[in-house]
Design a protein around this nucleic acid. Structure first.
Length: 403
RNA sequence: GUGGGUGUAGCUCAGUUGGUUAGAGCACCAGUUUGUGGCACUGGGGGUCGUGGGUUCGAAACCCAUCAUCCACCCCA
């Protein structure tokens, strides 16, 4: 038997209903916030991700589905959504057009990782990207939008917040931190020594207890922000408070992708296992430039759809649609015609084998149909149909055209 | 990439210190006699016990390998 590849799943009932419900909900909220749908290719030039996500990240370093195509191009399946949207933004010269551009997207992402609960090799994200707004108010709006989406789905969460500084204060802080790490080099774990060289900010996220004890005394980025970063972060916090959004500051929140600056946030759930991040994002003011566009401030996020699925509170399923059947072979053609008519506006399932009324009712009930329509000999000779509303438990024999 | 757990019916799982035709519940199909659903009852279909070796008179069970899957580390959505 041929199986799907490891970490790549089919989405079947009943999860597909949740999946669809999530997309409907998220897209309609995003539209209310002025975002429009954008679709970009699943396959992109490898260089795009190297330059945006960053070579020091695990995603680019070891998790990409990368290969050479028949035209000898170095390509890979997208491991995340932002890079492609930014590429599209630049390629279509929207950076030069000026103004504000807001997009949302959804679709599969690919990362070659060892699968576990909440972590797949092919998974789906819903994300938004906003271009051209410098104001931290946009960051707040985006966070409120995620809260709206999660709220509409009945999903509880904790919001973690941090500021990563900008090209002004971050490099200075980095130096300060490296100085601190040099002073404690003898006591650091191997991973941290490696991180010190590649991406020193990441050491703060180290799970090693001995390292964490040391880092308690490490300089904190949040205390080393420049004036504008600091005041933006304050504004962000105040606005969130005023809008009733509870957050916690997590100075160790260092998004894994290199392009973030200033605002970084992560929505986590405590109910879904070790892979607890359900949404993450932040500001990436330099990324458009990195991808050869004109400097454009931007902020965005992505939601991991599979991680939400089991948390979604679905609206109660009600009886829906029609079940149609005949009691004798002669009546079957009429059922087919009735079904054709009704399908202009309604869901209709037709039972093709003639059977007793009782058996039809059983069948209609099993598929949760609202109405059971049956034609027997009596109805056929009179040009009528028998209809029962399985919810109201009422029934009637009516003219076929009146159905 | 590293560690641990688990593979028996469509699903959830039993299966005694190795013993004869491998079971249950749910689901599915059919029936319970005149044209009335959910309940109940009766019957039925469906399994090369993940795969390949080995030990044994005999393996679903014990051993080895392999594959798959799950969980965790790592990292992240």
């Amino acid at each position: 038997m041929i199986r799907s590849l490891r970490g790549m799943n089919d989405i079947l009932p009943p999860d597909n209903a949740r999946f669809e419900y999530f997309l409907d909900t998220a897209a309609s909220v995003a539209k209310r916030y002025g975002f429009t749908y954008i679709e970009t290719p699943l396959l992109e030039e490898t260089a795009l991700f190297k330059r945006s996500v960053g070579e020091s990240s695990d995603i680019v370093g070891k998790e990409m589905y990368q290969f050479t195509d028949k035209g000898d191009n170095d390509v890979c399946l997208r491991p995340e959504g932002t890079a492609g949207v930014v590429r599209a933004f630049v390629q279509n010269k929207l950076d030069r057009a000026g103004g504000i551009h807001r997009y949302f997207y959804h679709g599969p992402m690919f990362r070659y990782e060892r699968p576990q609960k909440g972590r797949l090799r092919e998974f789906h994200q819903f994300g938004c990207e906003s271009f051209g707004v410098q104001s931290v108010y946009e960051d707040v709006t985006i966070i409120m939008m995620i809260a709206d989406i999660l709220g509409a789905l009945g999903i509880g969460y904790r919001l973690k917040l941090n500021s990563l500084g900008d090209h002004n204060c971050m490099p200075q802080y980095r130096e300060k931190l490296v100085g601190f790490l040099d002073a404690h080099e003898a006591h650091l774990c191997e991973d941290c020594l490696r991180r010190k060289a590649t991406n020193p900010i990441r050491v703060l996220d180290c799970k090693n207890e001995r390292c964490q004890i040391i880092y308690k005394k490490a300089p904190k980025l949040i205390n080393n922000l420049c004036e504008s970063c600091n005041s933006d972060f304050d504004t962000l916090k105040h606005l969130l408070e005023e809008n009733g959004i509870v957050y916690e500051i997590d100075t160790h929140l260092v998004r894994g992708l290199d392009y973030y600056s200033k605002t970084a946030f992560e929505f986590v759930s405590d109910d879904i296992g070790a892979q607890s991040a359900i949404a993450g994002g932040g500001r990436y003011d330099r990324l458009v430039e990195f991808l050869d566009g004109r400097a454009t401030p931007a902020v965005g996020f992505a939601i991991g759809i599979e991680r939400l699925l089991e948390l979604i509170a679905m609206p109660e399923a009600s009886r829906e649609g029609y079940y149609m059947g005949a009691m004798d072979t002669e009546s079957l053609p009429q059922i087919m015609q009735l079904a054709k008519q009704k399908r202009m506006t309604q869901n209709v399932i037709v039972e093709y084998s003639p059977k007793s009324l009782k058996a039809h009712l059983k069948g209609a009930d099993r598929i949760h149909a609202r109405y059971c329509v049956v034609i027997g000999e009596n109805e056929r000779t009179e040009g009528k149909v028998w209809v029962k509303d399985l919810e109201a438990k009422t029934e009637a024999v009516i003219e076929a055209e009146a159905l």
